[in-house]
Every structure is written in structure tokens, then in C-alpha cells.
Design a protein around this nucleic acid. Structure first.
Lengths: 253, 253
DNA sequence: GGGAAAAAAACGAGCGCTCGCTCAAAAAAT
DNA sequence: ATTTTTTGAGCGAGCGCTCGTTTTTTTCCC
């Protein structure tokens, strides 16, 4: 435990150098555990969360969020009643309302953490990959899969409930999605410019890569049932994409 | 008009021969217009639909279904109230209930037409493609895109509301999805067996093709905004897939 | 062809219920 | 003793659904 904490504070620099290679390596770079996210959530919403003691607030928040994600992903956020949520999280109706002031706020709080996680994990690719777009593309695919693996219920929630967001939230989701796609198409454009591969249509190809990344968390159950690990999925997607863009296998590997 | 009907009854045999090439060609093979689907719907539910006159029933059904798909795809089936639906479709609450006996039945009626459409359009690939798996794969991709283009709101509905189905419906959706994937992986396996291309992992590759096909109707708005036509999307997906499975471009084209 | 009788279709207020949400009081922590 | 946290019955609104009634269409006899 102490050791793990130490290694989390002094991370290996694998992500910085652009070689993540495994889910574990990714997870030792970033703390996207339920508790850590809920702690950040508390910071961001000190004004609406009426519970004073941080350690109590974080604990209860974690139970609320976990139950919300479970119930929503099973039958939809709108179909989940707050009475169900109270039962599942072991709190009373009233207690729930010390953590959010409306059901919509709860939804937006979760969305906020998802989009913040995307920014912090994908926002700044390691500088060492600045002039190696092929490896930068791989890094993007890897990091995306490992991030969404770590926060799978969160991403599934954001994906499924996006259309129910109050307008503000829908736009945030759209912007976040376009930003990810832009990272991909930038890398692709760079690959083309350096003549490391040929891509007939950069924009459209980037658009097609997105659903490959999304499928990992949207259909997570299917892949689990078939015994596909995150690492195998990264391998498959990378191979698929690199084949599709006529990149010679082994090039710059 | 008379000419169009005649040509619909005596279709060109493009789909049968495995060359669909365009959305229009597909649509002249199969009638997946709102009215035609609602007519089939009426046949299938004569016992629950209490309206006697077929032409009245079909007209009203079309308005109900169209409004249901519009409202549901905007904010979710569960969030759509029957009062909203009554207003949008121009019927009264009571009139709605002559066409279905519960909100869940309405959902299942729509799902039924979607899964029936999949069977009839993808169920039996043209016999002429039996021993040409590369062209069969292309036919599958094309036909899937053109089918889902023609019935986009239906497919989006089925995709988004799948988890809300009463168990029976959820399994139907799952079976239908797996069947499509099986068609793809059969073609892929055949391609490999005939050594026309190399695919590292047939199952996983087939699984990755599925989200490419789904993206067309799930994110239809994005592609419309960018001016991507169904034909261009077919072209892009075909190229992407054939590149990924190391098929030489131009082979058997 | 026209008008009364019968059949079909549409109507919408109202039912029982559950929803999101509140707040006075109890319980727990300090 | 005082503050913090939790409780859960209760509120009005809105839900899916029903059914007595009205409106529209069809039938049929003269």
C-alpha cells in the first residue's frame, strides 16, 4: 500500500516517453479510482455539497456515484428513480440531496469528471512524440483504450445519456468528442505529410477510428465474455488502423 | 408514378447479382418506406390494433411511429410521455391506445420491424456471391449502410433503447446483432481460407467492423453535417476494412 | 339521392400511482 | 450543549392508462 502510493507519486515515465504498453502502466500514471475522482468532484462542488467533513463526503459520494452508474447503465438514467438510488446507495432520499440539488446536477457532475479525465489523459501527448506521428497515433489509441477501461462505467454513462443532457452538457460532450477526433486527424495529417503512410481521406478516416475506440466501453460486456483483454484490443485496433492507412507493419515500431 | 410502381414490381436484379452500387438501387429492390413498414406492422398486429379499416390504420400508424421515432431519438423513449406523443402525432390519448395496448408494446412493435428488415435485407446474400467472399463482404457492408440509411431513425431507436427492452426484446436484439457479426466473420473466414487476404484474428476483426457500420446511423447527423453521402461512406468503410485485412486494392474489383 | 340508424373512430377528463424534491424532527457527532 | 448529519412522510406535478361520451363515417331503406 505504502509502496503503491510512493510509486504513484513518483511515476515511471512510460506515458511521458510514449510507451504505455499495458493497462497497469497507465493506471500507475493516473489515479482514476472511484475515490480519487470523487475527491476531485467534492473540490469542484464544495458550494452545492452541504456535507462538511471531506472524508464522509467522499465516502458517501462514492457510494452514490457507483450506484448511479450501475443503475443508469442497466436501464437508463431517466428510468432510475431517486428512491432506487437511495436504496442502492444505502442513503435516504434527503441525504442524497445534501450531495446534489437536482437529478440533473448529479448527471452533470458525472459528465464533468468524464470530460476532465479526457483532458488530463489525452490533452497533452508526450513531447517526445511531437515529431513521430505514427507513435503519437499509437499512443492516442492505447491511452484512449486504457482510460476508458479504467473508467468504463463513466464513459458508457456519458455516451448513453449524452442526448439527455441539458443543452450546456450536450455541447460540452460534443466539443469533447470533436477534440478527440481532432487529435486523431492531426496525427493522421502529420503521418501523411511525412509520407509515412497514405490516407485517402484524413477527416473521414479519423471519424472511422472513433467508433473503434468507443466500442471498447460501449460493448465492454461482449469483449469480456470473449476474453479479450484491453491489451489485446489495443493490439487489434492498432493493427486494424495501421493496415487501413497503408502503413507498413513494423515501420518505426 | 405508374412507371415507378412498375419498376418496383419488376426490380432490376442488381442486388441479386451482388452489385448494388448506390442507395437508389437498394431502395428500388426493397420497400422500406414508412408506409410500407407500417402496412407490414398492421398485418403482424391485427389482433392488438383495434382499428378496422386498413388504410386508416396505416395512415395513423405512420404518424404515431414517425412521432415516436422523432421524440425518442431526441430525448429517449422513456422520457417521451404519451401526452407528448398524442400532440405530436395529432391524435388523442385514447386514439393511441387503439393501436397498441401499452407503451412497451409500442416499443416492441418498432423493434420487430427493425429486426425483420435486417433479416430480409441481409439474411440471404445473392447466391452468385457464394464463392466470392471478398465481394460478399463488400455486399454486406454496402447493404448494411444502405439499409440503415433508409431506416436510420428505426435503427438509432433500436440501438439506443435496446437496454430498456423487456427481456424478450433485449435477447432478440442481441441475437440479431450476433447474426450480423456472424455473416461478417463467415465472409472473413472464407477470405482467409481462400488465401485472398490475411486476417490475424477473424472474430476480433469482425467485431471491429460492426461499430464502423453502426456509426453510420448512430452519428448520422455528424456525417450529414460534413456532407458525407452514403455512397462515400460505403467507399470509406470498404477501403478501411480491405486495407486492414491486407487485401490488395483492386483485387477482384 | 337523402336522411335516419348503426358502426367505427376519436376524444380527453380523470384514475391510481410514482416521480423529483422538501423540511421538521430525530439521531449522531463534537 | 451545540452543531452536523440523517431521516422518511408528505407535496404537487405528471405519469401510463381507461372509459363514458362525442364526432365522423358507413350502411341501407325509401
Amino acid at each position: 500500500m505504502a509502496f503503491e502510493l510512493a510509486s504513484a507519486r513518483e511515476p515511471n515515465s512510460s506515458a511521458r516517453s510514449g510507451n504505455i504498453v499495458s493497462l497497469k502502466a497507465f493506471q500507475s500514471e493516473y489515479d482514476f479510482s472511484l475515490e480519487a475522482i470523487c475527491a476531485r468532484m467534492l473540490d469542484r462542488h464544495r458550494d452545492t455539497i452541504r456535507t462538511q467533513k471531506p472524508h464522509i463526503a467522499v465516502t458517501k459520494l462514492a457510494r452514490i456515484i457507483q450506484s448511479t452508474l450501475m443503475l443508469s447503465n442497466r436501464k437508463g438514467f431517466h428510468s432510475m428513480s431517486l428512491r432506487e438510488l437511495a436504496t442502492a446507495s444505502g442513503l435516504s432520499m434527503g441525504a442524497l440531496y445534501t450531495y446534489f440539488d437536482s437529478k440533473d446536477t448529479l448527471l452533470m457532475m458525472i459528465l464533468g469528471e468524464v470530460s476532465s479525465a479526457v483532458s488530463s489523459a489525452l490533452g497533452c501527448p508526450p513531447a517526445s512524440l511531437a515529431d513521430d506521428p505514427v507513435r503519437r497515433l499509437r499512443w492516442l489509441l492505447e491511452t484512449h483504450v486504457y482510460l476508458t477501461e479504467t473508467m468504463q462505467p463513466w464513459f458508457l454513462f456519458a455516451y448513453m445519456e449524452a442526448k439527455a443532457f441539458p443543452k450546456e452538457g450536450r455541447e460540452k460532450a460534443r466539443r469533447s468528442e470533436l477534440a478527440t477526433e481532432a487529435l486523431i486527424s492531426d496525427a493522421l495529417a502529420d503521418v501523411v505529410q511525412r509520407k509515412q503512410a497514405s490516407v485517402p481521406n484524413v477527416e473521414l478516416t479519423a471519424a472511422l477510428i472513433k467508433p473503434l475506440l468507443q466500442d471498447w466501453y460501449v460493448k465492454r460486456g461482449k469483449y469480456r465474455r470473449r476474453g479479450v483483454t484491453p491489451e489485446q484490443y489495443v493490439e487489434a485496433v492498432t493493427g486494424f488502423v495501421e493496415g487501413a492507412i497503408s502503413l507498413r507493419r513494423g515501420m518505426s515500431r
